[in-house]
Design a protein around this nucleic acid. Structure first.
Length: 490
RNA sequence: GGCGGCAUAGCCAAGUGGUAAGGCAACGGUCUGCAAAACCGUUAUUCUCCGGUUCGAAUCCGGAUGCCGCCUCCA
């Protein structure tokens, strides 16, 4: 498989350092508030990567940290009068709740910065012994110019960074670009003892300490959002390699950012939607579909319209799954076997395409996790499958083809964490999405009954009027063999 | 100012040298009292623009324009 490596700026074949085992460290969240959909994108991207690596037979250790001590948490604590630890705990729980609602399983290891103070202190001490760290006033800084490779990840040179950059002047720093490893605490702030006095870790050092603690000095994969390339990952890389003298991570993966009106979704811009807000309006699987329908390295623009589109698209997949299960359900005694069947509705080429579905999806995901292309193949298969379903045969060969395709769709869906729900139930719930309508379901049912009576009396004008009035309120009626059902017009 | 990325149909979006996936929308058809839903079909001679390399380029190279990200906390 190939992955795009930020370090080399191109796709490279990926092989784990130790055969059969792979470690992934993905930067998690700072827990001072509810997470927004951008955080969900990040987590879903790495979740799919992990599922994919596992499908390829690798044993994956996924590490995703919580930054549970930092200026924003302290500020939040001061503003709300809630102890900082409680703030952190609350938003860790909130994050876990959100990810669980999105169907994302926990990572193998979810370390917290405050649980690794000894490792962090040790790491800083090594850096100090090697001359990469120095104490200035109450803080400890990393001596950026002593590390020759500084800038290799983000492609910047130290001297270029100085020009035009907004660098805060700090009289305790030897160089304005040096960054904090250990931050001395002010009175009343949370603090841990250290050789440099009471304080707390800087932002970057925790990730170096925790990733190496769980995955060794050289990681296979390290990832995060593109906004972390500089300074966070550049600094992590510098301090880690300075300390160990070894390559820190073989691959650096960075996903594109979620945007709104083409602008980055972020707390500071205030243009964000929390996961909870989005899940109140759209089912989790729709949100997942939306997030992986674009390549992970592209920017992805959020809007209600885009989510609604994703909902319709997902419904298409589930509708075919439901149809498939209905047909197979009509033949409970059927056993798939080596039967031949020649579909009348498909060309030879189309049969071949259906036959190579799994191979093509695998190939797409092998190529830098191209989920968008993989989904495209799934939709193509569904279109051909729909045509096949029209043949409505009872021959064992025909049923075998349906049986196998159903199995394939479910297996391929599992890699993307899609299509695992009961299709009939999913189709129903996707179509009858409850919203604020200004009319009660009881009233709707009454009108439907009135319309049914009119239709029975062949008074179609009256029946059509009722339907039209409801449509004006956003209620769409559908006459089905099981009677009239209603749904919210999308 | 520096670094990086992106520009493909009405919209979203794959495709990185061999002649434009897929989704949504729209339109046509099947079905229906009429609809809706579902299904089928149609919809880019062309990939921001200008040069160049090549038998051949959306894909590679040079330039222009526009947008975005990072350089400050950020997934």
């Amino acid at each position: 498989m190939q992955l795009y490596n930020t370090l080399s700026r191109r796709k490279e074949p990926f092989q784990p350092l130790k055969p059969g085992k792979v470690g992934l460290y993905a930067c998690g969240v700072t827990v001072y508030d509810d997470c927004h959909l951008g955080h969900a994108r990040s987590t879903v991207v790495f979740e799919v990567l992990v599922r994919w690596l596992r499908r390829r037979g690798l044993k994956v250790t996924w590490v995703r940290n919580f930054t549970d001590i930092d200026d924003k948490i302290i500020r939040r604590a001061q503003e709300t009068g809630v102890p900082w630890l409680e703030v952190a705990e609350r938003y860790i729980a909130s994050f876990q709740e959100d990810m669980s609602a999105l169907g994302i399983p926990p990572a193998e290891i979810e370390p917290r910065a405050t649980g690794h103070i000894p490792e962090i202190v040790d790491l800083i001490r090594v850096l100090q012994d090697k001359g990469f760290a120095y104490q200035g006033h109450e803080d400890v800084y990393f001596r950026v110019r002593r590390f020759p490779g500084y800038g290799k990840l983000s492609g910047q040179s130290l001297d270029d960074m100085l020009v035009g950059a907004r660098i805060e002047v700090d009289p305790h720093k030897e160089d304005p670009l040096d960054f904090v490893l250990w931050k001395g605490s002010k009175p009343g702030e949370p603090a841990w003892d250290s050789p440099w006095g009471p304080g707390r870790p800087g932002w970057h050092i925790e990730c170096s300490a925790m990733s190496m603690r769980y995955l060794g000095e050289t990681l296979d994969l390290h990832g995060g959002g593109q906004d972390l390339v500089f300074p966070h990952h550049e600094n992590e890389l510098a301090q880690s390699e300075a300390a160990t003298g070894r390559p820190f991570s073989r691959f650096w993966l960075h996903h594109g950012l979620l945007t709104i009106n083409q602008e980055k979704m972020s707390k500071s811009l205030g243009n964000f939607f929390t996961v909870k807000e989005v899940l109140a309006k759209f089912p989790a699987e729709v949100v997942r579909f939306f997030l992986i329908n674009a390549h992970y390295r592209s920017p992805l623009d959020f809007s209600d319209a885009a989510l609604a589109e994703a909902e319709t698209a997902l419904l298409r997949l589930y509708t075919t799954m439901a149809h498939l299960e209905e047909v197979l359900g009509r033949h409970p005694d059927f056993k798939p076997g080596e039967y031949s069947y020649y579909p009348a509705t498909l060309t030879l080429d189309e049969c071949a395409r259906l036959g190579s579905l799994t191979g093509r999806v695998d190939h797409a995901l092998d190529d830098d996790l191209n989920t968008a292309q993989a989904l495209g193949f799934l939709f193509e298969a569904v279109r051909l499958l729909n045509r096949l379903l029209e043949e409505n045969s009872s021959e064992p060969g025909y049923l075998t083809i349906l049986f196998n395709l159903h199995k394939e769709l479910k297996e391929l869906g599992a890699v993307l964490n899609l299509l695992q729900a009961d299709p009939a139930a999913m189709v129903k719930s996707l179509r009858q999405k409850p919203l604020d309508l200004g009319i009660s379901p009881e009233e709707i049912e009454q009108l439907i009954a009135a319309r049914a009576a009119a239709r029975k009396a062949k008074d179609f004008a009256k029946a059509d009027n009722i339907r039209k009035d409801l449509l004006d309120k956003g209620i769409l009626l559908e006459d089905t063999p099981q009677g009239t059902v209603w749904r919210v017009k999308g």
